[in-house]
Design a protein around this nucleic acid. Sequence first.
DNA 1: GTGAAAGCGCTAACAA
DNA 2: TTGTTAGCGCTTTCAC
Lengths: 344, 344
Amino acid sequence: MNPNVFYGKMGVTIKQIAADLKLAISTVSKALSDSHEISPETKARVFEYAERMEYKPNPYASGLKDNRSRNIAVVLPEIADSFFASAIDGIEAAAQTKGYHVMIYLTHEDAQREHAIISELRHRRVDGVLISVVSNSSDIPHLQGLYEHGVPVVFFDRVHTAIDTANVVTNDFDSAYSAASLLIRKGCKRITFLALRGDLNIIKDRTAGYLKAINDHGIDTQLNPVLTCGHQEDETMTLIRQRLTQEDSPDGVICSSEKLTTQTYSVCHRLKISIPEDIKIIGFSHLPIASLLRPSLTTVTQPAFEMGRTAATLLLNALDKKRTILKKESIVLPSMLIERDSTG
Amino acid sequence: MNPNVFYGKMGVTIKQIAADLKLAISTVSKALSDSHEISPETKARVFEYAERMEYKPNPYASGLKDNRSRNIAVVLPEIADSFFASAIDGIEAAAQTKGYHVMIYLTHEDAQREHAIISELRHRRVDGVLISVVSNSSDIPHLQGLYEHGVPVVFFDRVHTAIDTANVVTNDFDSAYSAASLLIRKGCKRITFLALRGDLNIIKDRTAGYLKAINDHGIDTQLNPVLTCGHQEDETMTLIRQRLTQEDSPDGVICSSEKLTTQTYSVCHRLKISIPEDIKIIGFSHLPIASLLRPSLTTVTQPAFEMGRTAATLLLNALDKKRTILKKESIVLPSMLIERDSTG
DNA sequence: GTGAAAGCGCTAACAA
DNA sequence: TTGTTAGCGCTTTCAC
């Protein structure tokens, strides 16, 4: 069969159906939406014919009227992080049940890229935006603009509190507090907290929780510092290696992100520092295979799927009611501290 | 500030600009597209005003004309698998550079869901589709229909050869052959190949490569069987556990998917079967942290990012040329067998 | 109960 | 060089 037969064969339009059935376009439109002002016979004819022709309304044509596409955007720093992968899973689940479609945008921790993406989203390609930001200090005006122009925004995980909208987070402060307390309880005297450069609320909260625990236990803060790492892999690995080989090297580490966690493990493996004997490690990570690591990793595990689903549901509910301004609220879903072998 | 001030404040339209500048709509349109038939002065005025008003064309309004949205769909079994996460990364990278937008659909290994999604995509919400199918036996008519109705389809990884379009795969047969050869070389006498239920080309190819290796080495096929697992976690774990505890239990396992790999590791850990002494393991997996597992895992690692990017590029190039029928071709990107401790 | 017509935001053929 | 008009596919008044 010649493939060109099909070339450009588009779906049937309402116009086509109207012509074929010798009806007015509006009659067909009403019939298809099961309007009461159309006779049962006509409806039947139209339905049957539409079915046979596999008619499907063009979503963007209908959307043109009320300016909706039923598309939402998800803007993320990266996707290779299992937290974000699971979050997307949750978002997609919520979207599918509500008849929305999910567009993915990756910022790769680059504020400029994020900026470009946000700008692009002003064009009304999507009805709303779910975002986990690159940094707190960047791009507030743009996000604010997006929001003000009728594209609602819901933050999740990495939030901007400067913008008055809904967000979904986890209890970062408390989790870090618990993590530090665990290490202290396990006898660690020189803990290092690995923070992430970039002015992020979640990192600030985790750091604060850690410091509070150190303080509450009356421990020397000098010996239990915070080490701030960047997003560059080589640089960070070097930093971690230096820290683990210096004099008075730490006997406990809390890694505030998934990447930092795996990087720390790598360094320990290479330097043959044994976990948990020489050093105990806790990672903020959603890794499903934490238990298969060498040794199995004690984690603060975020409710990633639920956070994604909750954020999406908040957004979608608003959209369904055609509300583009969301009540400022913060939904906090708890993380879990799961003890495994890396804390001995 | 009262948030309601902004409620529903949409972007400026070309109509608005025309009215404000006392120009015809078409003049503005042409000016904005830098048409040669508009005077420099008018252009300047329009540009400047559009800039000031932050005018952005509505993508779906323009798309209505030529029936394009510049959206593409990516249909995947799951996202928690690091292969697919990386593939999305590659797809998104290609899309961003070409000005396309990526929509994600998750089938969760469910043929019905896949079917529903494919149907939905017929509605011209997207200009093209990248898909990694749930199964070979399902849904050919629907995909064919999609394709024939002018929505080009490119398969990647899990392909349908029944449809005459482009696809991107990796050298599954050869990789499995190499994997089996490695185990044989390492002295394994009773290898089990864990296949995945569901009529997938990649699994068939991997299985075939494995069997060929067994044959080529003149080894007893009875003692080196293929065990087919399902997608249900509990069921699969039980199956694996039974296999590893039976009489004449295997001294080598090749896991044909990422999930099977981690499940096999879990079982070994629980049963305290030591890798690689009691059993050697190779996994088809893109896991970035394979080296951190206990013990580090020998993998067949797919070029996930490249596969995604290549598939997207094929599709996008066709779309740019308004070709909706793609030449039937198969691009094969090589996987890498990376030896680590799990094969001793 | 059905149809004509306007309009969503934009492009493009054709007039002026 | 600029403006008028028609039309993309669909919805929604408003007439008949």
